[in-house]
């Protein structure tokens, strides 16, 4: 699959490079642009990024593989990340994981058959005081109850 940035995103690149004294430092912001556009980061995209940064593709790949938020395969439309770290478990993360599994039909680490949901469990998201909680794409949902989860999932397009 060939990758190229959309015109709008391509136009953002000079501004990103201007923030840093080296090209390499623009790595994470540019990888975020890729993921924002595609939902994941393919090897072809890594090659394009490597060329922009004047690095070998392997130098980009080793970065992508280090960070848990960079997806190396397409996920569902809504990436549901339930925190089941120690602090969230103290406030009932276990039922939340089970409940979301049941509601979406996904096991942890899987995408639903209709491609709408992808379920992950994650470590601390700095929301311990409002646990149990989950993140869906860029948003946090906190102090969750079964009723709240039902409504949140229903309201997702």
């Amino acid at each position: 699959m060939k990758f190229q940035f959309t015109k709008e995103r391509e136009a953002k690149l000079p501004n990103i490079f201007a923030k840093y004294p080296t090209k390499r430092a623009a790595m994470l912001p540019i990888l975020w642009l890729v993921q924002e556009q595609e939902g994941w980061i393919s090897e072809e995209a890594m090659q394009v990024v490597a060329a922009k940064l004047e690095l070998a593709p392997g130098a980009v790949q080793e970065v992508v593989s280090f960070y848990t938020m960079f997806n190396r395969k397409p996920l569902g439309q809504h990436h549901i990340q339930v925190c089941n770290n120690f602090c969230c478990r103290l406030r009932g993360a276990d039922w939340l994981v089970d409940y979301v599994k049941q509601k979406t039909g996904c096991k942890v680490g899987e995408t639903s058959s209709d491609g709408r949901f992808h379920l992950s469990t994650v470590e601390c998201l700095a929301s311990c005081g409002t646990a149990p909680m989950m993140q869906i794409n860029n948003d946090y949902y906190e102090n969750l109850t079964p009723e709240k989860v039902d409504k949140i999932l229903k309201d997702l397009t």
């Binding site: 912001p29 975020w32 601390c124």
Partner: peptide
């Protein structure tokens, strides 16, 4: 003074 916000990508 220039201030730039930079985003990490999930690594404690």
């Amino acid at each position: 003074l220039e201030i730039y916000a930079h985003r990490g990508a999930g690594a404690y």
